[in-house]
Structures are given as structure tokens and as C-alpha cells.
Write a protein that binds this DNA or RNA. Structure first.
Lengths: 161, 161
DNA sequence: GGTGCAAATGCAATATTATAACATTTTATT
DNA sequence: AATAAAATGTTATAATATTGCATTTGCACC
């Protein structure tokens, strides 16, 4: 069974991510400001990629003032630059990185049904890409792999439906 | 040396693509209308992915009338549905498919310098993705692989610069 | 404590990409 | 010609993202 399908204490997911982010920023001497923290919390609220404007809506709920788009995009740029979130190009959306300690692009399995996205941490795909690229003399910099399909849990649900 | 770097008769590239498209549409009994043909020609004008609005500009040059966005998007939808072009999500752009005869998503090597994109035709990457996905019980439907880097030709140019 | 600088944020406007809704025209078929 | 379906035209607008400039904040230095 898929790990996302298991009952998991998601608050713990969020707390871990926030703690890790705080520590990482401290180590790197960069500022984890209130806005950046709020945006990261939004991104981690679910395992589904979230759009910039959806984040904006969430921020608007939490305070009386509604931030302008650049506020959100700047926070996202910061988080992207520091590997705390990834951008899913095919969805124009953002998702928390599950291992910000080292820079990487990440490969994603995106379920078309529940919209959850899972970050893979295998080298298999990168190796394959490098092999194929090398055959053409191409030097890989940032591979982008976003696989849409159906997650284990949703397959299960569909079978029982 | 990279195939795109070789002097290649690009007019021939275009002609081949157009002929193939015409034949494919005839076989499938679908209409290769003037607009669709013009849009496909724009897409094939270079080996660089082109955006919908850039296509629109090209069409505006070629005739006195300027088509509206839906005109271009509808033509693109038709071409996408029939596998004649691919969409590069990370660039919001479109590129001609080099083998429209069978449906596939295509993997792309995109050069950050010359902006050319090359479609790969290996199974290595799909296998790797399937292997990784299967480990998580995930059923792959449409893999999206867009690798940004530096093509052989641009590496060569940079070395000599 | 002030001063000045750089980073971060606020804010208004606008650019870019894409779609919705409905009218009109074209095409194929009867 | 009559009809229906497909394709295109047209207007408006949605959704995503950035630019440019003003203001505020945090921090090193005197």
C-alpha cells in the first residue's frame, strides 16, 4: 500500500518540514521570515501541489490583509532557491521538498484522481536520463520528471467502487 | 556531433513533417485545414519549442488578419490530440513530433543556450520510470520528461569561445 | 543611540498563457 | 436546397507570473 494512503499524522509531517526548514535557514544564515514560513506551511498543508494564487487565498484567510501576488511569488522563489519546495511545471504548482538538505530537482508521481504527488528518491531515473542524454552528447543540468497516473490507493478505491 | 548541429536541410525537415501530417490526416479521415497546416508549419519552422502567442504573431505576419488566441489553441489542441505536436510544459511551448504515427508523450532534451529541443526515442527512460513507479504501486499514464541542459553543439561553441 | 546600506516587503500596474461562451461559416450528407 | 455537425470567428475574461518603484525592516558601523 502506498505510504500516502496509510493513515499518517499529517500534522507531524508539517511540523517536521517546518522544523527542518527553520534549522536549514539558521545553518545557512538566511532568513526564514514570517511570510516565507506561512507560504511553506501552505505548501505543506497537503501532499497535493498547490498553486501560487491558492496560497494567496490561504494567506488572505489567515490575516485581515490580502498579500499581492509578488509577495507570494517572492516567498516561493526563496523557497525554491533553497530547495525547500519544488515547482511542478505541468501543474503550475508547488510542493514541499521532502529532503531539502541537498539540492535536487526531484521526480514526481502525480495521481490524477486524488491529486497527491509523491517525490521519488531513486537514482534509476536520473541514470536513465543521463545515459540517454550522453548518447546525444547532451550535458544534463536540470531534469524535470512529472509522471501523471493513478496512485496505489486510488487504484484500490476504483476496484472497490 | 549533435544531429541538430549538422548542417541539415531544414526545409526538408519541414516538408517531410507536413507531408507526413497530410497523409496521417487522410488515413485517419480527419481534416488538415488551412489553419492547422499553418500552425503546424510554425511549430516546425525551427527545432525550438514555440509558444502559442508566438505562433499567433507568425500567422499575423502571413496574412492581413490577425487570428484570436482560441484559433491558435484550437489548432494546437487538434495537433496535440493527433500526436502531431508535443507540449513542453516547463516552457509553455509546443514542438513538432518526430514520429506522429504512434501516440507517445516523448522525452525532451532542451538546450538552455540555443533553445533547441530534441525528442528522444529510447525506452530506457520509460523503463526506469515504470520501475520506480511500480515500486510504489503507481500506475503510469503519461510520463513527462523535460531535461534542460547544454547540447553538444553549444558545449563545443563554449569551449572555443 | 544615530546613520547608512542592503534585504525584504508593499503596492500598482501589466505581461503572459489559456479558456469560456456564443455567433457565424463551412462542410458533408441527405 | 435542407439539415446537422464540425470548424472558425469574436469578445471577453480567467489564471499565472513579472516589472518597477515606494516603503519598511534588520543589521553593520560609526
Amino acid at each position: 500500500m502506498d505510504e500516502l494512503a496509510k493513515q499518517h499524522n499529517h500534522q507531524r509531517c508539517i511540523d517536521d518540514a517546518m522544523t527542518q526548514a527553520r534549522e536549514l535557514c539558521q545553518r545557512r544564515q538566511i532568513k526564514f521570515t514570517a511570510i516565507r514560513e506561512q507560504v511553506l506551511a501552505c505548501v505543506w498543508a497537503k501532499h497535493q501541489p498547490i498553486g501560487a494564487y491558492a496560497i494567496l487565498e490561504e494567506l488572505a484567510k489567515d490575516s485581515t490583509r490580502r498579500p499581492a501576488p509578488p509577495t507570494v511569488y517572492r516567498a516561493l522563489d526563496f523557497l525554491l532557491d533553497n530547495g525547500l519546495v519544488h515547482r511542478i511545471a505541468s501543474l503550475n504548482a508547488f510542493i514541499g521538498c521532502k529532503d531539502p538538505s541537498h539540492h535536487h530537482q526531484g521526480h514526481f508521481l502525480i495521481c490524477r484522481h486524488c491529486r497527491n504527488a509523491m517525490e521519488l528518491d531513486t537514482d534509476i531515473i536520473n541514470s536513465a536520463i543521463n545515459t540517454a542524454a550522453t548518447q546525444h552528447g547532451f550535458a544534463v543540468e536540470t531534469p524535470c520528471v512529472e509522471v501523471v497516473g493513478c496512485c496505489a490507493n486510488c487504484q484500490e478505491l476504483n476496484r472497490n467502487a
